[in-house]
Structure formats: structure tokens, C-alpha cells
Design a binder for these strands. Structure first.
Lengths: 216, 216
DNA sequence: CTTTAATAACTGACCAGTCAGTTATCAAGT
DNA sequence: ACTTGATAACTGACTGGTCAGTTATTAAAG
């Protein structure tokens, strides 16, 4: 037999700038699917269009790839939003409507929705990482929401309730939606409209938080 | 130096009946902590007070240990409750109060709270298992709640809302609590009272679901 | 003494990390 | 332009350690 076809394949090109990002994007997918331990460096490499050795030109170890990945998406949408929210003066209803619409969109279409799953899965193996996320993302998000709700209480827009707990009530359906999309939806569950779910959530929540002597 | 101390090693005893349960209990802890891939059979064995080989007398493989574990706790509290709930005739408020109290207790103290975390983490590696849980636990629980709420709507106790979505609103804070306990709480987050949280949830939810023309 | 639960030493597969060699790219020299 | 030599990005075969699963052996129990 003759050689079937000489592979021409300008095999690879140098792309020093782009590599780290591409590798992390690939890692996001593979870690989300397999978890840390079961993810093979060769899988990540293949998905990034390189070979295993290349990863080690940019990252010292598998663990460091994982940690870089988990840190990469911190401070993006959410944390900046927290700053803007601090001196927001509109109503609680308005604020949460905007917030949940944006978040709902990200859940339905965004790539980042898999990150919480990764953190949940590996919190046992990487306690420092879980703590990092708690302080950098969760505490900040809850702090922001607590502030908004507390302001709503002062203003008489919201009845007397413990604001820190209501903040968690706010995000619970968001967490639920993320898990649904990343864990349940792939098992061919009946279709689920996240936008509709979150807007119902907001409707019920705000009605449930109205003061007794309600405005006409 | 002399040999420090001959390990007396009250060697072992035969306990055919008890072993499988003990092994699964050990596996629950180790899988919850490390995830499937990173959990070592020797860790599970040690925690169960046996050696690795013993596990293979009772289970054919690591995967089968994991699956047995995941199946073991299905049909316990929740699913039986679903049957009883079907012909429950009390109010929605009463029903949910009882349910969330029981569930809240399990979350705060129960061993089983780590299972959802395991399922979430390994859904990518064991799609069949994720589907099994979805059909056997999630669909049934949501079905039960949807039924209760639909009945509440008919009865005029609850305003006109899509019952399947409200069912998810019901459980979202439960999911949130489970994740909080198994993922966030170990990072020394500020103490969190699950009972209080869930009762606030119920309070806000029911108020949010009241019909417009409310009873005096 | 026979049966069998349980052990502990062993094997083989798999994979993170390494490194000697290959190839794209660029710049200096003609 | 058009070599050619230097540099560094990239490759892929290899290694060393780890761990799931096996098996020869030991000892509890009747």
C-alpha cells in the first residue's frame, strides 16, 4: 500500500499571545465536564489545538491551570455591578428587575454558567479556592443585595425583614437555575424557561415583601 | 533502637451483614469530600475499618460502589412523603410548613445533605446517574409540589400562577441551603441558621402567592 | 477440619510532568 | 530580495508515581 495521503498540514503556528486564553477556555469546558481529577491534560491540550507540552510552557502545573481558570472570571460583571449598585437610588423593584434580567440572560446563554459547578465540585479538594470565591464573589454579591434591601426597608418599600436572609432568598432561584442548566438540563429534562422563572420569582418575592399597609 | 511497639492489632472479625452498609457510609463521606475520581478505594476502606480487598468482596468495582451509594438514599424520606402528600387535604401553608421543617432539620444535621453535591459534581462523568436522580427524585418531588400548589390554586388559597414554576421556587432555597452547608460553610462563613432562613422563605413565598382579594 | 471473610502483596494501566528534538519566525548579512 | 543563522514556540516519546483491581495467603467461625 502506498502512503494514503501525505499530511500537508502547516502543522502549527506561533501564537504566544493567544495561547494562555485558549488553554483556559479549553480547560473551562473539560473541567466542567469531568471535574479536576478526571480531566486529562491531553484533553485540554487537544481542545485548545496544542499538545500537552505546550500547556507547561504557560502554566507550571495542572493545579495552576485550574486556579487560574477559577480566578479569571472573578471581578467581571458581578463585582463591578456591586460598585455601581452602592449609590443606586432607584426602587428595589427596578434594581432587581434589571439585575435578574441580565443574570437570567447569562444563565441561558453564557459560558460562565459552568464555573459555579466546578467550584462546588472541587471545594473539597481546593478549600482555598472555595474560600477565595466566597470572599470575592459570594460575600460581595450578598453584601450588595443586603444593602439594596436594607435601603428598601428604610424607605418603606419593603416590610421589616432580616435583609441578609432576604438577599439569599433573592439569589436562591439563580443558583437553582445554574444547577438546572449545567446538571439537570443535559439529562433531557422538560424544557425550562429561565427568564420566565426568574421573573416569576421576582414577582412573588416583591409581593411577599410588600409592607402590610400597602400603597393603593 | 528496639521495635517501638508491636502493634497488637486485635486483628479483625467477620461481619458479613454489616460490611456493605459500613462501606457505603464511608464512601459517602469520602466521595463528598474528594469527588469520584480523586477518592481512593483505600481511603474508603480505611474509613470503613477494612482493607481495600474487602470492598471487592461486596462490590465489583469503584463505579458500582458509587452507584449503589447514590441509589441507597432514594425512596427514603422524600419519595414516601410524595405518596402521602397525594391525598393530603390540609392547606398549602400547613403542608409546606411541615415539609420545610423536616427538610430544614435534615439539612442542618443530616448526613445525606452531601449527596446532592456528589451528584452535581459527577453528573458529567455519570450521565445515567444524573438522569436516574432526575427521574427518581427531582421529577417526583417537583411533581408532588406542583400537585399541592395546583390544588391550592383551585381552592382559591393561591393566586393564578404556573404551578410547575412555583414548585421550583419552593425548593430553590432548599438547594441553596444544601450548597451553603456543604460548600460555603466549611470556609468559615458567618454562621447561618437554615431553619430561620427556610421559615422566612415560606413566609415571603406564601404572602407573595396570596390572591389579590385576600381574606380578612 | 472445612469453609469463607478478610488481608496484604502484587500487577498493569494510566497520566502528570519532563526534555531532547523539531519547526515557525524573524533579523542580520549578502 | 533571498539566503542563513539564531531564537523560541511547540512537539511527542518517555518516565516515575499512583491507584484500581487481582490473588495467594491467613485466620475467624462452626
Amino acid at each position: 500500500m502506498s502512503v494514503p495521503h501525505e499530511k500537508p498540514a502547516r502543522s502549527w503556528s506561533r501564537r504566544k499571545q493567544a495561547r494562555p486564553g485558549e488553554i483556559l477556555d479549553a480547560a473551562l469546558t473539560v473541567f466542567a465536564e469531568k471535574g479536576f481529577a478526571a480531566a486529562r491534560m491531553e484533553d485540554i491540550a487537544a481542545r485548545a489545538g496544542v499538545t500537552k507540552g505546550t500547556i507547561y510552557l504557560y502554566f507550571p502545573s495542572k493545579e495552576e491551570v485550574f486556579k487560574s481558570l477559577a480566578r479569571k472570571h472573578v471581578g467581571d460583571t458581578l463585582v463591578n455591578a456591586a460598585e455601581q449598585a452602592r449609590q443606586y437610588e432607584g426602587s428595589v423593584r427596578e434594581f432587581l428587575t434589571i439585575l435578574l434580567t441580565v443574570v437570567g440572560n447569562k444563565i441561558q446563554h453564557g459560558e460562565v454558567a459552568v464555573l459555579p459547578k466546578i467550584i462546588i465540585a472541587e471545594s473539597g479538594n481546593f478549600p482555598e479556592l472555595a474560600r477565595f470565591w466566597r470572599t470575592e464573589v459570594i460575600d460581595k454579591a450578598l453584601g450588595m443585595l443586603t444593602g439594596v434591601i436594607a435601603k428598601g426597608i428604610e424607605r418603606g418599600e419593603v416590610r421589616q425583614v432580616p435583609a441578609e436572609y432576604v438577599a439569599r432568598l433573592c439569589v436562591a432561584p439563580v443558583v437553582m437555575s445554574i444547577i438546572w442548566r449545567t446538571v439537570i438540563a443535559p439529562t433531557d429534562a422538560v424544557p425550562f424557561d429561565y427568564q420566565k422563572f426568574l421573573s416569576l420569582h421576582l414577582d412573588v418575592l416583591l409581593k411577599g415583601l410588600e409592607p402590610e399597609g400597602r400603597k393603593p
